[in-house]
Structure formats: C-alpha cells, structure tokens
Design a protein around this nucleic acid. Structure first.
Ligand SMILES: [Mn+2]
Ligand SMILES: [Mn+2]
Ligand SMILES: [Zn+2]
Ligand SMILES: [Zn+2]
Lengths: 140, 140
DNA sequence: CAGTAGTTTGGAGTTTTTCCAAACTATTGA
DNA sequence: TCAATAGTTTGGAAAAACTCCAAACTACTG
C-alpha cells in the first residue's frame, strides 16, 4: 500500500533539477503542480500562497517562476502588454485568449495543424511556435 | 502633372477617420506610414519624433498610437513582457520574433497555412489568430 | 556540527504605460 | 471673421509589473 506522502512528487522534482526544497519553493511548487494545468501570473501565485498561509515574498515568487521556467518546468506565455503568465503545461500546445477577461485556455497541440511555415532566416533556429487565438464576446 | 503635396496622403487618412490633423498627429502619422511596414514601440516613435525636431509629448505618442489602433490603422503586437509594438502592416500576416535582439519581422499571411484550428468556445468569436515564430541564434 | 553555497527578503529602483486637469487649437457656423 | 465648442496636447504624478540589492537565513556537505 502507498504511504501518504503529499510532498513526495514535488520534492522529487526539485531534487531532480538540483533545487533545494525550501519551505517557499516546496509550497509554490505544490500550488503550481498539484492541481492540473494552470496559467498563473506572479501576483496571482503570490496571493494564493498568502491565502494558504505560506509566507513568501513577491521577489521569491518571481525568482522561483523564472528558475522553474529556465529549468523547463514552466513555460512563459505573453499575450497582453504588462503581464506574464506562467504555464504549467509544458507540452506542445497553443492557446485561446479571452480578451474580455484575460483568461488563457489550452489548445492541445494536435488540434492545430500548421501545414505550412516559412523557413527560419539563415543563422537562426526556431525555438517555439506560438499560436494564439484571440477571442471576444459574441457581440464584437 | 501631380503637385508636390508631401502631407496629402497622410492628411487624407486622418480626415477619413475623423481625426484632426494637428501638427503632432500629422508628424507621427508621417513617421509611421511614409516608410513602408514598421514595428515600433511608443518610446521608439517618440525618439524618432524628437530627432526629426517634432516637439511632442510621450503621452501624445501613446494617445495617438492607441487611437490609430482603435481606428484600425495600426495593430498592436505583444511578444515580450513589458513592451508593446505597433505594426503598420494591418493585413493578415504573422511574425518572426528574434528573441536575441527583440526584433519583429513580418511573415506574409499566405506563407502560413493553418490547416486545422479548433472551434471557438460557444459564445465567443475569433478576433484574430496570431502565429509567432520565436527564433534564437544558431547556437541554442 | 561548522562551513559554505544557495536562498529569501523588504525595500528601493526601474521601466513601461496610464491618468489628470489645465492649457491650447482646429473646426464650425453665425 | 471670429467666438464658441469640442477635440487635443501636455508635464508631471501615479500605477503596475518587474528587477535589483545586500543582509539575513537555511539546506546541504563533510
Ligand atoms: Mn521573465
Ligand atoms: Mn494598449
Ligand atoms: Zn497552456
Ligand atoms: Zn507585422
């Protein structure tokens, strides 16, 4: 029978990438990774941590989000001026963006087919292709 | 024979959309529209204006860029956190984004074929589909 | 357990963008 | 021609998101 080890998964992930499992990092990792795919802003995650009674500074939230992104555990998504979202879904996929309320929704990679794309200019390499489907309410 | 009317085109465009052709607006419109397709930030356009000896405040540059965007003369492109680009190419097209130097380059609409896209969620409507091809130097 | 490298933190700083209310100006039509 | 009006511009203050810093703290190693 499996023991009750609520932190184990997240703890192992931190170890795997060589980050010390500090109280703050562990708590943020749990908020990020233990509830399915999410798109969160730094401010949002900070609020969630405080509500969960985890004392952590906003600077640490930014540090952590950027470390996780650099280590490939998160993906940064930019759709609006003045706010970055961090995506816990790091698989190949795209996004609906609801311009009215600023929400992001995943589009699985296989539901988009890019049948043709130009060659990248000489000396460059494609890092990623983002498809953003911008949505408005039914009126506009 | 055509008279020498350097401002005529831009002036007509302003009239067409119902904006008063003020000194500032006229100058900004010329910088934007009289040299082919461009992707400029507000700060950039402001600098250009000053260098061309056009006294205009940064607030006015923002006002103007947003008015032009609302009126469909410009398109706002967001690829990086913390900076908006305004695109004078309002035709259906996409972008290469050079992550190293922050530059944008147009990809003509017909060079991208989106063979499949999911239906927009009920009650929403597609406003635009952005394809951003993020490029890195040859090393990464 | 002491030493060290990695981590966290509050607060100040930076950058981009927005807001504001006062001054200014293009347009209109009497 | 010009006064009234609505639209425009402006500097400076403010907001919003993010970064930086140096001091304090803590996880790991031996
Ligand atoms: Mn970042
Ligand atoms: Mn805007
Ligand atoms: Zn996603
Ligand atoms: Zn473009």
């Amino acid at each position: 029978m499996p023991t009750n080890r609520p932190f184990a998964r997240v703890l192992d992930r931190l170890k795997a990438v060589g980050l010390r499992p500090t109280r703050q990092r562990l708590a943020l990792a749990r908020l990020l990774f233990e509830q399915g795919d999410r798109h969160v802003s730094a401010e949002q995650l900070h609020d969630e941590a405080l509500q969960a009674n985890v004392r952590v500074s906003l600077a640490t939230v930014y540090n952590t989000l950027h470390q996780f992104t650099t280590l490939g555990m998160l993906r940064e998504v930019v759709v609006e001026p003045g706010r970055s979202y961090f995506d816990t879904n790091i698989s190949d996929h795209h996004h609906f963006f609801f311009e009215d309320d600023g929400q992001l929704q995943d589009i699985p990679g296989e539901r988009v087919e890019l049948a043709r794309l130009p060659e990248p200019p000489a000396g460059t390499q494609v890092r990623r292709v983002d498809v953003i489907v911008r949505l408005g309410g039914s009126k506009s």
